[in-house]
Design a protein around this nucleic acid. Structure first.
Lengths: 259, 259
DNA sequence: CAGTGGTCTAGACCACTAG
DNA sequence: TAGTGGTCTAGACCACTGA
């Protein structure tokens, strides 16, 4: 048995009186945000972690259990515990709650096509800077894109998204880079910019399509659209993306579960 | 120690090969739906339950843990484990995600007033019967009500709700009964009709206000409204309420968390 | 087959609540 | 003080994966 770390008689920088498994959880999150284990990769086994931290396997297990229910880690029996990613095909878009009206619950993924419209760097607008916790004057990357659904072979626009990202974190991000990418944008962000979205808060509203949105979404001006304002966070509750989506909900809806 | 039940070598009606704690969970749910413990009441201690079911405390604990994260039970250290209810003031409306735009996250409750508009019994419309799993021709109760928010002392309508309930479950439900009730409707349903909503599925859309909704909500015809269609379930995944809400989202929004 | 997570147990001690 | 849930441990065995 290695000369494992002390069971934290007085934890380093931690709240000092939190349960052991919470301290373990914090340490695991630290390793995750430090990039010790990348999205999609296995983390060490429970036994190894228990030895490393000098606690019992049960305590490590409880820490991992919580992180698994938070969708930060994914357990796979017989294989190991993995860092959650936005790459898995089962949940094509992990954060997109849009469903076709005719889909059976928990059925097939929406199967959407993406069309990138714009990507530019700018000084972050005041509101964007505030929500992303940027200093005034810092740069932001703005991306505009469209999602289209196949309707009897013909594609119809369904979602118009405007994204703002902290310029400092997304240095090499260009339209070309995104156009060449297959798969979810969040996966690109993980792979190329080491920015991993783990949580998001959304505010939903009904709004009327303005001239701009109406043109892009191919609907009459004034059409009711579902406005979805999303603030996404990475490890440590750091906001790293602001997104405003306009959903045309004629043949789709936003699905939610309450309990 | 009582002559506790066998550890279910071959479970009675259960899936037979599920983990013990899942069987315990099923048994607890059976007791809950049978009304052995009512919303707001304490259930027996973990030690008692362990004895009753003939398993270890840890196994009961794991069953209760899951039911607590599903918001079916609520643990309170030092006091016991309680059946969840819609009565608690902290979560005034447990299933209502509406928030004032100016509220700080996780802040004060919306503080809404209720105005009941209508309550009638009828043969369930086809679509309602289908979603509530009623036989054709069965009766349903329809309720229409308004929620209003205080805007500088003056009340403005924010939500128009239409509810459909299975007539067989809500025999004595009248407009007068509801008007006399203080507190959430779901609490009334628990207390008077033994119907406890534990889970719901919602479908959200943006729609234009028709003449009817426009009048009641005091907005121009065509105003974009957030349509929230909710199907609520009680124990055993039994659908017991269909609700269609129209939210005026000029000064409020629907808040959601993703992970 | 070895290694992983998943289940289950038994027992110790802590933290909180209430009489 | 007694009773509750909360934490932590150590060890046994099972179920699944992949070489």
């Amino acid at each position: 048995m290695p000369a494992a770390a002390e069971p934290f008689p007085s934890a380093p920088g931690a709240p000092a009186f939190s349960p052991l498994y919470q301290q373990i959880k914090a340490l695991l999150l630290k390793s995750l945000s430090a990039g010790e284990w990348l999205p999609g990769q296995v983390i060490p086994s429970e036994i190894e972690l228990a030895a490393r931290f000098g606690v019992s396997q049960g305590t490590v297990r409880k820490a991992i259990d919580e992180m698994a229910t938070e969708n930060v880690l994914v357990r796979r029996q017989g294989k190991g515990t993995f860092v959650a990613t936005h790459a898995e095909q089962e949940t094509q878009y992990r954060f997109l709650r849009l469903m076709p009206d005719d889909a059976n619950p928990d059925g097939s993924p929406p199967a959407l096509q993406r069309r990138l419209l714009d990507c530019r760097r700018m000084r972050a607008p005041l509101e964007v800077a505030r929500l992303l916790a940027l200093k005034s004057g810092e740069s932001a990357v703005q991306v505009r894109r469209l999602l289209l659904a196949g309707r009897d072979g013909e594609l119809r626009p369904v979602v118009l998204d405007d994204l703002w990202l902290p310029g400092s974190l997304f240095k090499g991000l260009t339209l070309e880079r995104m156009m060449a990418w297959r798969g979810p944008l969040y996966r690109l962000f993980e792979a190329e910019f080491a920015v991993h979205m783990i949580r998001a808060e959304e505010k939903l509203r009904a709004v009327a399509a303005d001239a701009d949105a109406a043109t892009v979404l191919d609907v009459p001006v004034g059409t009711p659209l579902l406005s979805v304002e999303r603030l996404s966070f990475t490890y440590g509750n750091r906001p790293v993306e602001l997104r405003r989506g306009l959903y045309h909900t004629a043949n789709h809806h936003y699905r939610n579960e309450l309990s």
